[in-house]
Design a protein around this nucleic acid. Sequence first.
DNA 1: GCGACAG
DNA 2: ATCTTGTCGC
Length: 238
Amino acid sequence: MTNLSPELLAYWEAEQNRLASKILIPSAGMGYLPDVEDIILVLDIQYQGNVAAIGGVLGNPQGEIEQVFTAQVSADVPYAPGYFCFREGPPLLKFWQNLTKAQHLQPNLIILDGHGIAHPRKFGVACWLGLHTQTPCLGCAKESLLPFEGELPDNQGSSLAIKLHNEVVGWALRTQSGVKPIFASPGYALSLETAKQLIFNLKGEYRLPDILRLADQVARAQAKNELKNDWIDWGYIS
DNA sequence: GCGACAG
DNA sequence: ATCTTGTCGC
């Protein structure tokens, strides 16, 4: 990976701190609460050089799949741990704009690969996208960025709080017995409790809920030009 | 000083 | 995330 200048990292850090102050995470029972009628959008990206191959899956709050979209967007910004939002945010926002404007769709909640406030400066990519779309957004990652203490029981449905400066900012969640946990945190307009409940309510038999796995598969297929017929492909969008 | 570090 | 072969197991 290209070494990023200390000046850029300092700027990004200041940006995250500035934007983080605009994020208000609601308390339990407040903010976004799932309704059976709601539309959930799950997003994932695979990279092929400087092109982002995006999979977007629409479903309901139980994680049942309804429709699949995919596209390619240019990705100019390099990745740096802790600054993921500046790389992955803009391509996702482009995808969102296409979905909402061109397709006239308005999902009630976004779920994406990465963190929300479970981040050193409480500003993961789920915060970035939630702010820019003004839509409730939940981050769900396969690795934690913050260290956490305590033991997560092996049984399905157990959870362990992830804390930053003694404040709960996310969860390690055991989605299946005997498999590694996944890590969920709210990014925008939903509570920690709702974030946890949403993930546990998503249908699936594997470590990752089905709808998240599908978003991953679609992005992968887009990157390799192996799309399925019932997926709606926008091709390259700018 | 060195390594680790969401995707 | 990506570069990559075979291999073990259901």
